[in-house]
Structure formats: structure tokens, C-alpha cells
Amino acid sequence: MKVEPRRIQEFLGFMVLRLCIGVVLFILAVIFFDIISKGIGVISWEFLTQPPKDGMTKGGIFPAIVGTFAVTVITALLAVPFGMGCAIYLNEYAADNLFTRFIRISIRNLSGVPSIVYGLFGVALFVEGCHFGTSILAAGCTLGLMTLPLTITASEEALKTVPRSFREGSLALGATKWQAIQTNVLPYAISGMLTGAILGLSRAAGETAPILFTGAAFFLPDIPNSVFSQFMALPYHLYIMSTQHHNIMLVRPIAYGTALVLIVLIFTMNLFAIILRFHLRRMKKD
């Protein structure tokens, strides 16, 4: 029996696609296996709750965990409300003209700016310009700026998924535009908006370049006591432990441990985003 050429094409096509996903999954698996197998050994209660000791060759990473957490909170305070606000304005109110198209393109382009550029910009604007000094606040604001384009774009996409009939339905009943948005658009877009925001934040939590000059410290024995303090952060700590320490080979397990904690932290945030979306989606149905 003769096999049709299109059947062969179908078979080959699927094989190529399977191969692509296989390669990606394989690389991911190797990275995970490497980090987990080498990092799990140093994870202990002490590692998670103590500051580094003995020239950073012993002890834990507690200040870095707290620092990353604090910076991410500042980032969220800046990126989430402003991102949602911009998205609501752009999607619901703004006219479609040359000016708003220019704004949209600019936002898209901003998400492509290298993070080190944001870092330098943060030094000029927040550290020097606003006199925040090298601090949690300056670093958080810098990361917030970097995350804004992501949250705006994600929020706008979420708003677009709400059908026009919801808006028209409420307007036709004499609702104002803001009432329509508040009662009949936001409740159905909010899960998507928040998911996008959390994904953006988890990305920001793992960034090194933007915090490098704006507030991250090599070593601090204590946790920061105000938003104007310098701080240790997980990604920066990892960078130091892998490249800047005087005895890199000795502290290699600590570096792996730090990487593991950072990855788990980011995974937890993403997991939270998934749970939140699932939960809000179910609420919508009831």
C-alpha cells in the first residue's frame, strides 16, 4: 500500500514539534537537577534564619531573603496600581490616535530595555535625583519601573478579554463609564490583571542588574530597619558567591543553596498567581 505524502508530512511535522518541546524540557530538567542536587545539602533551618558568618563562608542567607522580600513589596506598590491604572486608561478611555499609538509602542519598547539600563537610570533618578540614597526604596522603585511595562501590557490584555457586550449592557442601563468599568469590567479582568502582575513581580525578584547600584549590599550583618537602608538580596548574593568571593570553591554550596531558595521563592509566587487565577475564575462562575 502506498503511503500518501501528506501523511508523511504530518508525521514529520509532529516529530519536529515533539523534538522542540523535548529539548526545552530536557534543558530545564538538567538545570533543576543540578541546582537541587547541589543546593539541597546546605538547606537547613540555620541557613534560612541566620546571617552569613566567618567572612561569608558559613551561616545563612536570612538578610538576603528579607531584603528580596522587602524590595519586592516596594516594587509591587509601584508597579501594580500604576500598571493597572495605565491599562484601564489606555484600554477604556484613551482615543485611538497617533499619540496613544505612540504611547503603546513606547510601552512595548520599554519592556525590551536591558535591565542594567534601568539600573543606571535608577541611580540617576531615585538614588541621586530623589535623594533616596542607595536603599530598598530606590531599588524597589527601579524594579517597579522595569516591571511597569509588563504589568501594563498584561492588564490591557486581561481587559480585552472582557466582552464588549458587558460594557454596552451596563451603559445602556444608564451607568456611567466608570460605573460600567467598576462593576462590569474590572471584576472579570482582575484575575488576569493580578496574574500578570505577579508574574512580572517574580521576574523582578530575580533581577540583579537594577539593584546592583541602587541599594544592594555585599554584606550586612543585620536585616534592614527602614526603606532607606541598604539591603542584601538573593540574586545579588548569588552573584557575589559565584564570582566575587575570595574563596569561591569553598562557598560554592552556599551559592547553590541561595539559587535554590531564589527559585523556590519565584516558583511560590508563580504558584500563588495560578491559585489566585483559579480561585477568581471559580468565583466568577458562581
Binding site: 466582552p163 457586550s165 458587558f166 454596552e168 449592557g169 451596563s170 451603559l171 445602556a172 442601563l173 444608564g174 462590569n184 472579570y188 466568577k284 462562575k285
Partner: peptide, 16 residues
């Protein structure tokens, strides 16, 4: 105006 002039759309669009 829209309060005085109600509208029913082609596709039923009850709110969820």
C-alpha cells in the same frame, strides 16, 4: 438619555 432609552441587544447579554 440611556436611562430613558433602554436597549435589548441581539445576543442576550446577561451579566454573570
Amino acid at each position: 438619555l440611556r436611562k430613558r432609552v433602554g436597549m435589548v441587544f441581539q445576543k442576550p447579554n446577561p451579566f454573570p
